[in-house]
């Protein structure tokens, strides 16, 4: 704790709005504490920019504890930076070295248009969930919770898939800008659980159709999504979705 302050050079993507051309700007920060989070470093930068009469860098962030999925920086060529299983907000400056130059960009995908600077529009994800990422059970319809017995392993697998925070790092990392990991996580969760069986076929078809409509690329199994996923969602979910989808296409009426 409390080691020496670091000097960091930031190359940050600046783009005033979705229509404008963007470009990289370089900023110098001289007193970065290794215990700072990456976003706290941006707070410092922004305070500095405002004090100088400049425009602060717009970036998405909210919970700052790695769970809301809002933060979304592409850092030195990788979503959420160099550490495994960590969101940008949980990335600390001790993961960098004094004198480093860090390149920070927004997620880049046709389906995630830039709103401003490092902020992108990820509403495509909401539309995919709206297409089928649910169990159609109105409030009040439920039976007693323990009347649905679910083997622990199944519940654990469903939970592991359900931990997706919808940050979009999978799309950002994928060279194809594919959203398969995101979509498959939800498809898997509900395909594994007995509660999801009734809508199993319709769900996967509707969600994949919406995913395609949004303009995400196709999966080529590079595995980048899973490797960069801050929640380490497994590639087996994509395999499961493929199975579910083909099965649904072959058997559904």
């Amino acid at each position: 704790m409390g080691s020496e302050a670091m000097k960091i050079t930031l190359k940050v993507w600046r783009q005033p709005n979705s229509k404008a051309e963007g470009k990289f700007e370089t900023y110098q920060l001289d007193h970065v504490s290794p215990d700072m989070s990456f976003l706290e470093m941006f707070d410092v930068l922004n305070e500095q920019l405002i004090a100088e009469g400049g425009e602060p860098v717009a970036f998405d962030h909210d919970c700052r504890e790695g769970i809301c999925g809002m933060c979304s920086m592409f850092i030195n060529g990788r979503p959420h930076g160099p550490k495994q299983a960590v969101t940008t907000c949980q990335l600390h400056m001790r993961s960098f070295k004094d004198g480093d130059t860090i390149v920070v960009e927004p997620w880049r995908a046709q389906s995630f248009p830039v709103i401003k600077d490092l902020t992108v529009d990820r509403s495509a994800f909401d539309r995919i969930i709206a297409a089928g990422g649910f169990v159609s059970v109105n409030t009040g319809n439920a039976v007693d919770a323990n009347s649905i017995l679910i083997p622990k392993d199944t519940a654990d697998d469903a939970f592991a898939a359900a931990t997706c925070i919808g940050c979009g790092a999978c799309v950002a990392a994928c060279k194809n800008s594919s959203a398969m990991l995101f979509v498959s996580a939800k498809v898997s969760q509900l395909a594994l659980l007995p509660q999801g069986q009734a809508e199993r076929e319709n769900r996967v078809i509707a969600m994949v159709d919406q995913m395609d409509k949004e303009g995400f690329g196709s999966c080529t199994n590079t595995g980048a999504c899973s490797a960069e996923c801050p929640k380490e969602i497994d590639l087996s979910n994509i395999a499961r979705m493929n199975r579910e989808y083909v099965r649904a296409k072959l058997v559904s009426k």
């Binding site: 995630f112 990392a173 590079t222 595995g223 490797a227």
Partner: peptide
């Protein structure tokens, strides 16, 4: 065709820095 559409899915701008080797094998990319 897949390679073409997948490239298009990135949008009009591609990354200034992209470190694919950190997360995937070059053959896959």
């Amino acid at each position: 065709y897949l390679a073409y559409t997948n490239r298009k899915a990135r949008g009009s701008k591609s990354y200034g820095a992209y470190n694919g080797n950190a997360n995937s094998h070059w053959t896959s990319r």
